[in-house]
Design a protein around this nucleic acid. Structure first.
Lengths: 130, 130
DNA sequence: CTGAATGCAAAGCCTTTGCATACGG
DNA sequence: CCGTATGCAAAGGCTTTGCATTCAG
């Protein structure tokens, strides 16, 4: 994996986000530093870095993929109204992960446990408008 | 919500599935009974019934939405290779759901907890091919 | 009757991809 | 130098939507 300016800036921009931005958001921000970068490059690099384990791709909540600078699985809260995804302040401990896994694993290779609470975020819960 | 032939057959077809089919799969099967049904109708009805709480829409695992005849949240296992989604034989108990919720809820309206294990299903784990 | 539901086809949205060019090691 | 990475634009895949027509209540 080559070290390119584009890759570097994408990673830096993502790393400053705690709100799990989409490729499009990242693209817009990276353009401030590299005005000639293409959306395709952003997608390609996010994909490559996800596979390499440098970052993590979140595929929950519909067709828009979001990215997380922390590759280790951790619990999220997703707002069903505005789509915001927040990190939750606790870890998935091993006992929860392995908990009952052996009861049903039977030939499966269980790798990760994703925990996602859904509901209304603080902002959307406050605005009862609509 | 009117009771139409299309809606009825869609619900019946979905109800016989335990493998969380996509709209497209459902469409193909419903066509055996209603050859003139349109894909748009299938999408519209799946959406309507999801909102009504009759069925459940699963939005994990990328852009393809899948549907579950059981609207109550329950744990799933998703194969990262073939995309299969299986139900897991245990329930999300209330203690797990409410567990530490109050510690971070703070003005949020927490509604559901989605638990999804990922890895390789039995078939894909067996076929080391590719 | 009347409005919700349908069929059809087009449009939408996000993401991926082909290809010639540029550039990192 | 060589092959990976980029920019550009077109294509792709799934889902949604507009509109005239049909049908359930």
């Amino acid at each position: 994996m080559r070290k390119t300016k584009q890759r570097e800036v994408i990673l830096k921009v993502l790393g400053e986000h705690r709100d799990h931005p989409s490729a499009d958001i990242i693209y817009e921000e990276v353009r401030k530093f590299l005005p000639r970068i293409s959306l395709g490059t952003v997608y390609r690099n996010l994909e490559i870095m996800s596979e390499a384990g440098t970052i993590m791709k979140l595929e929950t909540g519909g067709s828009i993929k979001r990215f997380d600078p922390f590759p280790d699985p951790h619990p999220h809260f997703r707002c069903i109204k505005c789509g915001a995804i927040e990190d939750l302040p606790f870890k998935i401990d091993d006992s929860l992960f392995t908990g009952n896994t052996e009861e049903w694993a039977h030939g499966r290779a269980v790798q990760n446990l994703n925990i996602e609470y859904t509901g209304l975020c603080i902002k959307c819960n406050g605005n009862s408008t609509s």
